[in-house]
Amino acid sequence: MANVLTDKEGKKRYLVSFTINGDEHQGLVKANTLFVNFIRDELDLTGTKRGCELGDCGSCTVLMEGKPVNACLLLAVEADGHSFTTIEGLATTNKLDLVQEKFIEYGAFQCGYCAPGMILSAKALLNSNPKPTEHEVREAISGNLCRCTGYVNVVKAILAASGQEVEH
């Protein structure tokens, strides 16, 4: 359990620590601080987007221990002790992840607002299922809403990233 500090009005603050993209971070958060707001506001990791803040749209998808979660449904205190990957952690210096490359090549995003979450959901799928079927791809991204692409090129990009041959 995280360390607790109490201010003069009796409100509690919790000392949390977690690993994001390999870096260790600590923060003093309120009980109701959302993880998405903490990483965006305090750590400036704004690649994680806020779309609905109700867990419906998937824009704020991050990987928690490699699994996709909606960062708007996760409290910062719940994140304590865990390890995360956000979109900023996917590419290494000067080298995009294959999923990112294929998303660009296949035109899998337009406005790009859903792209970070969509790419991370795809990444999580391919980590656990390196050769998914089209239906499995659709299932894996069904929690990530995109208003631009009709998902046509998203599905193609993910299949292509899994090494399967896909027409442009």
């Binding site: 690649g47 900023e88 995009l96 990112q100 998303f103 995003f109 790009g112 792209a115 790419i119």
Partner: peptide
């Protein structure tokens, strides 16, 4: 704008 969008580096108004 492909790379900035794919890497989350691009800034929207709310960012």
């Amino acid at each position: 704008d492909g790379v900035e969008k794919a890497t989350g580096a691009g800034k929207y108004a709310g960012d």
